[in-house]
């Protein structure tokens, strides 16, 4: 946990706290925070900013009716929120939750690469990638933001080395080729807000098939 070198930038944390971050990215942020104490503290700091703002908002009086209603509900029985699954040594809790507490169902993406799509929609997509040692994530450029969180093993690309817990933030300028290190297969949680465009590895015709 202490070896994490690449953390969540402040603008993304603030955006997560505000709730303006699209769901696929929010999942990656929640997964990283689940295993990174530093970012957990930073997240709480941003919540504190929100609290300071709340404290300073011009109060607008509320009706006695609302006050009575709320105080009158204190004895109501209520359903406790269902217990959320715990993370395991590979998958942090938000990923276990997205997997429905089952192991991932991998689909081949070509030589040495598999994926398991967790969510895909208008807001973007989030998937698990499984890259065999020495293999590359298919060469691609981005239409927008891409967050990649390493859950097992490690990869290196033009920008550096990323091991367990490290988060790579890539935007449309970056053309990179992440290659899995020798040893364990590299498993990543990757979110994008736009379809990835493959530059060479895979014909673009195949994209709809793989939903990437």
């Amino acid at each position: 946990m202490t070896d994490i070198a690449h953390h969540i930038p402040d603008a993304l944390l603030a955006s997560y706290v505000a709730g303006s971050l699209a769901r696929p990215f929010a999942m990656v942020v929640a997964a990283h925070v689940s295993i990174c104490e530093e970012c957990r503290a930073n997240l709480a700091a941003h919540e504190t900013v929100g609290g300071a703002l709340l404290h300073d908002f011009e109060p607008i009086s509320v009706s006695d009716d609302l006050r009575d209603r709320v105080l009158g509900h204190l004895d109501d029985p209520f359903l406790a929120e269902p217990a959320r699954p715990h993370g395991n040594p590979t998958y942090p809790a938000p990923v276990v939750e997205a997997l429905g507490d089952k192991p991932p169902r991998w689909r081949s993406l070509g030589p040495g690469a598999k994926q398991c799509i967790l969510e895909a929609g208008k807001a973007g997509s989030v998937r698990l990638l499984h890259i065999a040692p020495g293999f590359a994530v298919p060469d691609h450029t981005h239409g927008g933001l891409e967050l990649t969180l390493v859950l097992q093993g490690a990869f290196t690309d033009e920008t550096g080395r990323f091991g367990r817990g490290d988060l790579e933030v890539a935007d449309d300028d970056l053309e990179h080729t992440p290659i899995a290190e020798q040893g364990m297969p590299c498993i990543c949680l990757a979110a994008t807000d736009a379809p990835l465009k493959f530059s060479s590895f895979m014909p673009r015709l195949l994209q709809p098939l793989f939903q990437i």
Partner: peptide, 17 residues
């Protein structure tokens, strides 16, 4: 770990979302 306003702010944001 948290101050009351921040804790309530977070509950409020989650509810708004």
């Amino acid at each position: 770990r948290a101050e009351v306003s921040g804790w309530i702010f977070q509950i409020a944001r989650n509810r708004q979302i």
